[in-house]
């Protein structure tokens, strides 16, 4: 008698439950609503020092594009030109914390403390003329920063089908 394949079981039972500790070790993402931001804080003066030591070599001393020079990293601070930077293109400040903590400095990603990342955010946002020099950054203040470019962003409005959009 020929039968066909059995129904899938409710669960295959492979894999293990992940503990909260195991999750916390990897769960480093930060959302615009602030979900994921850690304790700690940072300020502009500290940010300036950390930036000079750990970032300036690739992103220029003031973070601005240098005409005719190809730096190892992209410009981070709004300059004269139309180059896309944090100041004129980034919709959320939380992205800055998330990205810098996970991926920068390029040569030693994941090496910064949370306070260092908060300070770098404070400095970069201030350099981009979004926040003041005295603004402290922490889990409470960072999500409240209103980014100039946010209003420009729209979700994909292509609808599929024949239209070229």
């Amino acid at each position: 008698p020929v039968k066909t394949e059995p129904q899938w079981p409710k669960t295959f039972g492979y894999g293990k439950t992940a503990t909260q500790q195991e999750i916390a070790k990897l769960d480093i993402d930060v959302r615009p609503d602030g979900k994921g931001l850690p304790a700690g804080s940072g300020n502009v003066p500290n940010g300036a020092i950390i930036y000079a030591n750990k970032c300036a070599a690739c992103h220029a001393a003031d973070g601005k594009e240098i005409k005719g020079v190809k730096l190892p990293g992209p410009p981070l601070v709004i300059g004269d030109g139309k180059t896309k930077t944090i100041g004129n293109y980034w919709p959320y400040a939380t992205t800055l914390f998330d990205y810098v903590r996970r991926a920068m400095p390029y040569n030693a990603p994941g090496s910064l403390t949370n306070d260092e990342v908060y300070s770098l955010c404070a400095w970069l946002l201030n350099q981009n003329k979004i926040t003041t020099a005295s603004q402290v950054m922490n889990a409470h203040t960072l999500p409240q920063v209103k980014m100039p470019a946010q209003k420009l962003f729209i979700v994909d409005n292509r609808k599929g089908g024949p239209e070229v959009k």
């Binding site: 020929v2 039968k3 066909t4 394949e5």
Partner: peptide
Amino acid sequence: KNWNEARLQGPVLEKAHTYFRYLWQ
């Protein structure tokens, strides 16, 4: 003793190796 029909991975081509799968407990 018993035979069960396996799933064939498509597209099934002529004169071609065809992958089959059958779930067994």
